[in-house]
Amino acid sequence: MDDASMKLKQKQPRRYVVSRKLDAFFFDVYAFGQFIARFFRNLFLPPYEFKEVVHQCYMVGVKSLPLITLTGFITGIVFTKQSRPSLSEFGATSWLPSLVAIAIIRALAPLVTGLITAGKVGSNIGAELGSMKVTEQIDAMEVSATNPFKFLVVTRVIATTCMVPLLMLYMALVALLGAFVNVHANEQTSFILFIENGFQSINFLDLFSSVLKSVVFGFTIGIVSCYQGYTTTQGTQGVGRAANTSVVLAMFLIFIEEIIIVQVVNWFRIT
């Protein structure tokens, strides 16, 4: 098989440098690095699978809309409801739209969208590619003169990288709508006034950092789940493990990336 990452994953060290588990971990990290490098090599080489990219964008984006809508709306309502008592103590309920807008756009929308997409799309990709791997469908694609890496991996990673930011913006809007519903029920504020108040505290850096985070989260979800699925071994048990690991690892990395990006953006904000 020309799949270098697959070989590396299977290759077990005979003599352990540190310990069996630690050596295997570093082999896995190295194989994952090779997989990412292979993605970027294939990304710029023709043929370009535009049709499949559009199909995957539909699967990742449009199919996630109901879940994103529901979670976004609930997030908006709950966050506003929880924040109200604290602000009431200081007689600052008029700051509620600003507080909610900052929280949603800076933190909640990217993080919640990332986690929801990791759960829904990540597990889907991990299981689908894993199943294709163990039932030889990937080999079948290869022998029918189609580059399976390009067709299956590159298209899905592009789709998640492009669609997660769009889903994040959509979720932010829905969450703000949810917040407005709560504010309107208590203060009879108009939607225009709510949005005006809310966006007074939002600047370009807030929006840019959220989009940047979402792009990174989308890429992470795509590449992690494709790697787990594409390198699945050990039959149906392996498929379950691939789906599970895709979600857990993607979520873990999303939190790490969130911390790093927030630190960098805050540094820019101060300077």
Binding site: E128, S131, M132, T135, E136, Q137, D139, A140, M141
Partner: peptide
């Protein structure tokens, strides 16, 4: 292929 390897989707 032994498993036929038809594309399920």
């Amino acid at each position: 292929f032994q498993s036929s390897a038809l594309y399920d989707s």
